[in-house]
Amino acid sequence: MIKEKDLLGLRNISTDEIDEILRNAVPMKDIIMRDIKKVPTLRGKSMATLFFENSTRTKSSFEIAAKYLSADCTNLAVSTSSVQKGETLIDTAITLEVMGIELFVMRHGASGAPHFLGRNTKARIINAGDGMNEHPTQGLLDMYTMKDKKGDLGNLTVTILGDVAHSRVARSNIWGLVKYGTKVRVVAPETLIPVELQRMGVEVYTDVDKALKGADVVNVLRLQKERQSSGLLPSLVEYNKFWGLTSKRVELLKDDAIIMHPGPMNRGVEIMPDVYEHPRCVVDEQVTNGVAVRMALLFMMLGGKSGDDIN
């Protein structure tokens, strides 16, 4: 059971709750693999996606998860909605809420936007990425994938490589993993290492080769080209040369290590095309696991007591 009304991040959620989500995701993954990919569990429940930033996989993943569980999912196309006429975030959400929407999946460019909305709606909120803060369902699906492939999270060394400063994926990974005692290494150009990182309980590296050596998992972050206007990097070519994951660097990892990336990939920037082809690259499986984890979460947030019964 998810104790709070809203799932805003992995920072303030217990390992009991995470364990339950990851456990429920296992049978959900079976449903995805079946001929008839539908169960009636959330029949009659209504939810909406509210994406103020672009997305392919997160948005369709939530929508598909809802459909497999028989919930009705409305996608608000922000660019063609009354948001463009100046309708506020709260008014937009309340308009949908009074039509019967019980849960919002929200992505917004401003950190804290889902927290703000959650305080102003009865409907439950799942944060699908807020600014540079958190992207909890990506963190959960990454943890599911690591656990599935490598076992107990407490015994693993995970290297997060790349644009940590702008990455909500990195933050959710770190908040989630450190709760389990995972050794988390973070490696990035010094300009992309935020100051608060040391306090999150991770080891910070600036030497890629050292950070990769002997790791069980490397999670490569997307270089967020849309957030690089302030001259933090000289050029993409240089970034690739010094920080990109190449087949040669993969050899530094443990022999059975897995390679992860949250997508979308900038091939030839943070990850080389041949690394994606590597037999232990689990990028596609991460996407499938994403649907399973989101199904588990929707079941737990829409399936039991309604949002009204939870403070």
Binding site: V26, P27, I31, V39, T41, L69, F299, G303, G304, S306
Partner: peptide
């Protein structure tokens, strides 16, 4: 067989069931 996803009383349960594999 795990039937929890097919229960007709999910919304009235106080304790949410953990789903197991079929």
């Amino acid at each position: 067989l795990d039937i929890n996803l097919y229960r007709d009383d999910l919304t009235s349960l106080t304790e949410q069931p953990v789903i197991h594999q079929t």
